[in-house]
Design a protein around this nucleic acid. Sequence first.
DNA 1: CGGTTATACTTGAGCAATCAAGAATCTACC
DNA 2: GGTAGATTCTTGATTGCTCAAGTATAACCG
Lengths: 152, 152
Amino acid sequence: MAAWGGLLRSHATMTRAMNSQLIAEHGITLSDYDVLIQLENAPDQRMRRVDLANAVLLTASGITRLLDRLEAEGWVCKHSCKSDARVTWAVLTESGHQKLAEAAVTHHADIARLFTARLSSEELDALGCLLGRLGSRPEVHSVAPVADISAA
Amino acid sequence: MAAWGGLLRSHATMTRAMNSQLIAEHGITLSDYDVLIQLENAPDQRMRRVDLANAVLLTASGITRLLDRLEAEGWVCKHSCKSDARVTWAVLTESGHQKLAEAAVTHHADIARLFTARLSSEELDALGCLLGRLGSRPEVHSVAPVADISAA
DNA sequence: CGGTTATACTTGAGCAATCAAGAATCTACC
DNA sequence: GGTAGATTCTTGATTGCTCAAGTATAACCG
């Protein structure tokens, strides 16, 4: 299947490129970046670890270890939750915010180089829509509301 | 931007699903499967390790260790090359061929479940075409000055 | 209440892949 | 022919994640 093969290959190529660029220039992983972005966009720049794990598609333990790294660098800090003693908030620090801003420059350049230089903006829309449908949780059997995409 | 997020998410969801299915039912990794397929399709069911690495987007050392596992199971064997003593062919064995045939059943079912159940065949064609363009060689420039493009 | 079940998170062990370095071999050019 | 530079492959150390198990807290329900 061309689509499946393409997905494997394009993912590998792109994440490799983005990841090594981020590591080389900013010393952070693509996953790290992804987590920082999620926090940045979250209300109060904070999230529960479970939700974070869900958002970036990692395991609970994966998030624990990833956040350990980010905390060690001072980009994120823990904060206990008043209403539920089980949860510890992951909160983006000011220095984390700055780090993200720096890295974003590189990352956006990479996106530009790898995506927008290769596909037109209609094609990107179409791609985003198709991938969006593939990415949803597998156990849900919802009837797909469809947009037609034939431009490619 | 949506396309990039979608790529990350859909890749994660699908490979996770396929991988765990393959492990549960056949005790092989998705990468293992990928390598077996490459060998199956290669002339004489054999490939140089470098080409294999290139085909499945792994490092040379990654391939070495992966093949170690497959050899231990007896699905692949080494074969030295007459004309160039540096290369060792990775050759698919008969039992490797059988293993692949078994796994293919599961794998094709997964593809059907995850792909064809969600997208029409025209959509899949379009997707395959778009991803194919993204997956080609990234043309790595070190720290390239890139035009700023804010639409993604 | 008190007991079961579910949720949030951490920890130890393991695994597949990576990078960096090295060994063996081929190629090319003087 | 000899040496310098590629090319192919392996190995040791490390990384980033997973799974399984464990702790602690919350929610439900007789």
